[in-house]
């Protein structure tokens, strides 16, 4: 590829990057503006005065209360989902049994349920076992509803794992558990990181289940908290922008961390392989 080819390529890539990132920058800029600037000024302009008080106002509204709930609920659900999905995918793709196709089909059907038709049955089920207004109902719901998609993503990778590894392990007298936890899981680190990122985003932003199953303020998560704020500044768009930015920051940091893991994991497993 010639020099001109590279220039065109980078131009296109840059354009896409701009398209992906510009709205976020715009959101950030407008979180620092007041109404007049937002409505009459150019959307591209820097704010005349950086109004950090928009953030202070939002933070003092009590968002901090919901942070911890979001973090622990998201975290535990991710661990459960990725572990259970890896185990099930391993058995479905690598082991020999008659019902594996059928079971895989069941998980795929789980992908298809529209959540709004699930919430009313789920509510009455949780009510019967007294799990309403209990954060664990959220954790197990997140786990169950993210299992299918997590498995689908893992699936393609498990199919491509070389058979020889298992054979060698078994000839060496390695048990299946040891093989799974010591060899297979580390090998799938990149794709596990991918599913961790995806689960994290889903759980962090989930809204309908929390709103339906949780009634006490002390168990509510950030998204539900934010919903109350979007109404608050009905006419104060700067504060809305600040609220949205605040909700993104933690997940952005976690994302950058795991995103590097996707690459790191690969290089380390590549060395082993």
């Amino acid at each position: 590829m010639g020099r001109i080819g590279y220039i065109i390529l980078y131009f296109c890539l840059g354009l896409v990057a701009l398209f992906q990132i510009f709205p976020i920058i715009w959101l950030f800029l407008f979180s620092l503006k007041d109404n007049k600037e937002i409505f009459s000024g150019s959307p591209f302009a820097l704010p005349a005065e950086f109004r950090w008080e928009n953030y202070v106002k939002v933070w003092e509204g009590g968002i901090g209360l919901y942070f911890w709930n979001s973090i622990w609920i998201t975290g535990i659900a991710i661990i459960l989902t990725v572990l259970l999905a890896s185990m099930a995918t391993f058995v479905i793709t690598r082991m020999h049994w008659k019902l594996s196709k059928l079971v895989l089909g069941l998980f795929m059907i789980g992908l298809m349920i529209p959540i709004h038709s699930a919430i009313i049955p789920l509510f009455s089920m949780f009510l019967n076992v007294e799990l309403i207004d209990n954060p664990w109902s959220i954790v197990i719901t997140y786990t169950a509803y993210n299992l299918p998609i997590t498995m689908m993503i893992l699936l393609g990778f498990y199919y491509t794992l070389p058979r020889e590894i298992e054979e060698a392990a078994i000839i060496d007298g390695c048990s299946i558990h040891r093989m799974f936890f010591r060899i297979i899981l580390p090998m799938t680190m990149p794709v596990m990181s991918t599913t961790v990122i995806i689960n994290m985003i889903y759980n962090w932003n989930e809204f309908v289940f929390v709103n339906t199953f949780i009634s006490s303020d002390k168990y509510k998560t950030l998204t539900v908290g934010i919903q109350n704020f979007i109404g608050q500044y009905m006419t104060d768009w700067g504060a809305i922008g600040a609220t949205l930015i605040i909700s993104v920051v933690p997940i952005l940091l976690a994302f950058l961390f795991f995103s590097n893991k996707v690459v790191e994991g690969i290089s380390s497993s590549a060395i082993k392989g």
């Binding site: 535990i76 661990i79 459960l80 572990l83 185990m87 076992v129 007294e130 799990l131 207004d133 209990n134 954060p135 664990w136 954790v139 197990i140 048990s175 558990h177 040891r178 799974f180 936890f181 010591r182």
Partner: peptide, 28 residues
Amino acid sequence: LKRKAFAGVFVIFLSVLVMVGCSSDEEA
């Protein structure tokens, strides 16, 4: 190692069930 792996998986799974169970008792 086998036992460790077993235990690991089950501790996580059971602890969730236990926590779920306990907290619902509290509610009641």
